[in-house]
Nucleic acid binder design. Sequence first.
DNA 1: GTCTATAAATAGATAGAC
DNA 2: GTCTATCTATTTATAGAC
Lengths: 229, 229
Amino acid sequence: MPEPATRSRRPTPSPRSRPSRRAARSGVTGTRARLFHAAAADFAARGFAGANVDRIARAARVNKAMIYYHFRSKSALYREILGEMFRAVSSRVRGVADAGASPEEKLRGFIDAIAAEAQARPHFPPIWFREIAEGGTHVDEATLRDIAAIVGMLAAIIREGVAAGRFQPVDPLLVHGGIVGPILLFFASARLRARIEQAGARNAAHITADEVVAHVHRVTLAVLQGRVS
Amino acid sequence: MPEPATRSRRPTPSPRSRPSRRAARSGVTGTRARLFHAAAADFAARGFAGANVDRIARAARVNKAMIYYHFRSKSALYREILGEMFRAVSSRVRGVADAGASPEEKLRGFIDAIAAEAQARPHFPPIWFREIAEGGTHVDEATLRDIAAIVGMLAAIIREGVAAGRFQPVDPLLVHGGIVGPILLFFASARLRARIEQAGARNAAHITADEVVAHVHRVTLAVLQGRVS
DNA sequence: GTCTATAAATAGATAGAC
DNA sequence: GTCTATCTATTTATAGAC
C-alpha cells in the first residue's frame, strides 16, 4: 500500500463540504457521489484489498484520476465510506434514544434503526462484517466513537428500563450481540443463501427481513423482561 | 488473479492424504501444515485478496515456492482452508445430532459445537465473516454441502423436538441466525472490542465466551419452548 | 522436497495538459 | 474539474538447479 504520508491535496473545497454547488447542479449525481457509491459496492463485494480503483472508476463512469482528486487515496476513500456509514447509524439511533418514549419502544426503535440502515445501505452489512474481521484496522477515531456511541445508547436504554422497574439488568454487549448478530448476518448473507438454496438444498427456507426483525424484537424484549431462563 | 486453468501439479501424493509418513516424521510440524496455519492466519487478518503468499511463506519459515508445490495456487490454498473448517464444524455437529439424547440436549450440543469450533480455530470466525460478505465466491461444491448440512442438522433437531411435543415449530434459519450470529460476532470482534475499550469507551463491558454461550443457550431454548412472545 | 531467480501482470498513484 | 500517459512497487506464479 503506497500512499505516502506527505500530502496536501485539493486546496479549494474543505474536506467536509461535499457536493459543491456546482457539482450538485452539473451531472446526474455528481462525480464524487458516483465514485462514493461505486466504491462502496466494490469494497462490500471484494474487501478493502480486493477492491480496485480502476474498476471503481469504470463502474462510476468516471476517470480514475478523479478518485485521487476527490479523495486522497484508496484507503482515505474507504475510511470515508466507513465513517459515513456509522455516522448514519449512530445518528439514527440517537434519534430513537432521544425520543420521549417508553424503554420498550426505544428498544424496538433501536432494533428498527439497525435494520433500517442495513436495508437502506446494502453495502453496510458486508463492509461491517469485513471490518470486524480485520479488527477495525481502517476505523478512524471519530468513527470509533460513533461505534462506541451506538452500544452506549443501547446501554442507556437498558439502564432506563431497569430504573423504571421494567427491564432486568442484562449486559448491554450481550443484548447488542443478540440484535446486531442475527440482523447483520441475515442481510450480509443474502448472496450466499441464494447460492446454497440453488445448489441442491431445498431446506433453506425463505425468510424475509421483516420476519427476522420481528423475531429479534420478540426475543430481545423477552430477554430484558426476564421471560427467558 | 492469474492462476491458469491448465495445471497438473504434484503427481505423487493424492489430494487428500496430507502429512505423508515422511513429512510427518521429518520436521517440527511439516512444511505443509505450517503453511496451512500461517495462511489461515493471514487470510483471517487480511482477507483473501489482502493475504500475501510471500508473507505466508515467511511466517511459516518456508520457501514461497512450497506453496505452489503443496497447493496449486493461492486460491486453492484458501479453498482448502475453507473446506477443512467446514468439514470440522459439520462433522462435530453431526456427532451431536446423531447422539442419542433429548432434543434439548442436542440443541445445547449444537450451540456448543459451533462455539467450540470458533474457539478452537481462532481464524474460523473472521474468515467465515469475510466469506459471507463475499457471497461465498470461494466456496466449492463440497464445502457448500457441508454448510447446508449444518443448517439441515439443526432443522432436524427442531423437527425432532416438535414431533416429541417439546418444541414449537420455529423456522430453522431464524434459530440458526440467533445462534450463529451472536457467537461468531463475539469471537470475530475480539480485536475490535479491545480497540474500542482502549479508546476511551469505559462502557464496553468485559464479557466472556462462556457468558455468551450460556446466554445463547437460554435464549434459544426459550424460543423453541415457546416461552418468548 | 526445497531453493534461487525471474517472468508477467496488476494496481496504486501522479504529472501535466486542457 | 477532468483526462491521458506513465511511473513504480507489489505480487502471483513458474522454470530449473540441487
